[in-house]
Design a protein around this nucleic acid. Structure first.
Length: 270
DNA sequence: AGGCGTTCCTGGGGGC
DNA sequence: TGCCCCCAGGAACGCC
């Protein structure tokens, strides 16, 4: 599941390939993939269809054009890669075609991924919380945010309107690193532990971006997983010993999600 | 406010 | 070996 580090990895990867390229058309191979627009909307923007920048906001890949943006969400199994091949796998749901037969391929086995057409980032910003790696996002902010809610901490951290970019993997890793049980109630967690959570999120996300993420995010290089897969402390490690206390990692269900944690050294605050 | 169920999808795992 | 059943999971939405 692509989360912030995987999405950032995709952005870093495609950016040099697509900046300055002129989009000719978008071919939908799965009708729902183009969520709120069609190729007509792209045509009507002519001749201003050059990609001027590629960026990330929350878990969206943002293709910036002169007068609009395309926001691409990979959801569960979406993959985005640059290609000049003409034969696609059966899971390709959309093709963004440039000149010279070059294309951005959106491949998505489960078909949950979507592409959105907006004038700017306003709508996305209004629905999403702060970026955890933004320079102006501080530990004090996170403390205030978490203390101000009375909610299951895992559910809160997964909520994109609360904080952007975290998903199941990095929430489990961050809570393990800061020794907070996933079933803790947000306003009962002491400030010093939230401070530790803040540092854990920073460290983990930064390290995961450096490692090009955990899951497979494109097929164009080698189809291998990101190197962070080898650095996970709890996620996917059921029954393996906890790196801190040697207790067996458990898999439980929290907020409807499969959740990995150490019930011995992650304390529950209620 | 917050928790929970439902929906969208398909590959893959478990059971037999 | 093969078939059927069931389910994970991000986000939006409706309900209580």
């Amino acid at each position: 599941m692509p989360e912030l580090p995987e999405v950032q990895t995709v952005v870093n990867y495609i950016k040099p390939h697509v900046i300055g390229k002129r989009l000719q058309r978008i071919k939908p191979l799965w009708s729902k993939t183009l969520h709120n627009f069609s190729n007509k909307d792209i045509k009507s923007e002519e001749p201003h269809n050059h990609i001027v920048n590629v960026d990330r906001r929350a878990k969206f890949i943002i293709l910036k054009f002169k007068n609009y943006i395309l926001a691409i969400h990979l959801r569960m199994t979406g993959k985005l890669y640059f290609s000049n091949k003409q034969n696609f796998s059966k899971h390709v749901t959309a093709v963004l075609e440039f000149k010279n037969k070059e294309s951005l391929i959106f491949e998505d086995v489960r078909k949950f991924g979507r592409i959105y057409f907006y004038k700017n980032l306003n709508i996305i910003n209004s629905r999403h919380g702060p970026e955890p790696l933004a320079k102006n996002f501080s530990a004090d902010m996170l403390i205030e945010m978490i203390k101000g809610r009375k909610r299951n901490i895992k559910s809160l951290l997964l909520d994109q309107s609360f904080i952007s970019g975290l998903g199941n993997i990095y929430v489990d890793e961050s809570l393990w690193k800061s020794r907070i049980h996933s079933n803790s109630i947000s306003n009962a967690i002491p400030s010093k532990n939230i401070q530790l959570l803040y540092q854990s999120i920073q460290t983990i996300l930064t390290d995961a971006i450096d490692s090009q993420g955990t899951t497979i995010i494109n097929f164009s290089v080698n189809g291998e997983s990101g190197r962070y897969a080898n650095k996970l402390y709890v996620y996917g490690n059921e029954k393996k010993p906890c790196n801190r206390c040697n207790n067996k990692i458990k898999k439980i269900k929290v907020a409807g999600r499969g959740t990995y944690l150490c019930t011995k050294c992650q304390r529950i605050y209620k």
